[in-house]
């Protein structure tokens, strides 16, 4: 059976891995066991700050720490990171372009049992509209590790969309991650399935079913939502004539809308 790991798990482990850099500071809002920042905390307790259930303060304090030359990872659930603290993210982090990385776990619908109050289907919309923000939604644990390292290495604000659910590991150690570049997982010209986050593994299942029915689907993983890889999408639209998108998000304001609005040309579609 395929191994399953939650992207938040990979995030926590990667923080502990890159934590040897003394510039790295990790903050959490009383959810370190859930966001997995506790893995970092155990290794580097002096650079871990629990800010309590006070997300607005955490985000602006993260900005203050970052202004002193640190790389700050601030973590909480996606609902609170993107929703409750939206304006702190906008004004204290993104406007001054400070080096704060938001590790937002429990995004999407797959917090399941927690119910609708915690199911975040708006965060892509909220975070991608803020100037200077980069938004990445990794598909599996391997990609989440790469994305966390990319966040660490890329100056400026960064939103990492992570999930609670353990998802199949798709990529192996040879996987090359490039920020802003989509990844073609399967070639095919009958239809293109473009997915992000944990919907990528679901899209692989869908492509397998189609294959059995004689339909060759091109499968594309869009891990970076902003900046979006418009080339890979336009190419897929041109060459297949049909696109199906999968994201664990409200279609209003999701990444799909992002490319539809600017680049969709009806002539590209059969």
């Amino acid at each position: 059976m395929q191994e399953k790991i939650a992207t938040r798990e990979a995030y926590g482990k990667t923080l502990a891995e890159i934590g040897s850099d003394p510039r790295i500071v990790v903050m959490d809002a009383d959810l370190s066991k859930s966001t997995k920042t506790d893995i970092f905390k155990k290794k580097y307790p002096e650079r871990f700050f629990n800010m309590g259930i006070a997300e607005a303060n955490m985000m602006a304090a993260a900005a203050g720490i970052a202004s002193c030359g640190k790389v700050v990872f601030a973590s909480t659930f996606a609902m609170f990171a993107s929703g409750r603290a939206f304006e702190q993210v906008r004004n204290s982090i993104c406007y001054p372009q400070l080096n704060v990385k938001i590790g937002a776990s429990h995004s999407g619908l797959t917090v399941g049992e927690d119910g609708a109050s915690h199911q975040t289907i708006e965060d892509i919309a909220l975070m991608r509209v803020i100037p200077n923000m980069t938004v990445v939604s990794p598909a599996d644990a391997v990609e989440a590790r790469h994305a966390t390292i990319a966040a660490y290495k890329t100056p400026g604000p960064f939103y990492l969309r992570l999930t609670r659910l353990a998802v199949p590991v798709i990529f192996d150690e040879s996987y090359k991650f490039e920020l802003g570049k989509g990844v073609t997982l399967r070639e095919g010209n009958d239809v293109a399935i473009i997915a992000t986050g944990l919907m990528v593994s679901k899209a692989i299942e869908a492509a397998d079913i189609l294959k059995r029915e004689g339909i060759n689907a091109r499968l594309i993983n869009i891990h970076t939502i902003k900046p979006i890889d418009r080339d890979i999408i336009i190419k897929a639209a041109t060459e297949t004539g049909a696109i199906v998108t999968c994201e664990e998000h409200n279609i209003i304001g999701g990444w799909v809308v992002l490319w539809l609005r600017f680049w969709w040309k009806p002539a590209l579609f059969r």
Partner: peptide
Amino acid sequence: GQGISAAVGMAIAGKLD
């Protein structure tokens, strides 16, 4: 309301360093 939080962050950074 946001500036005082940023000041808290700067003070934390000062202690760290």
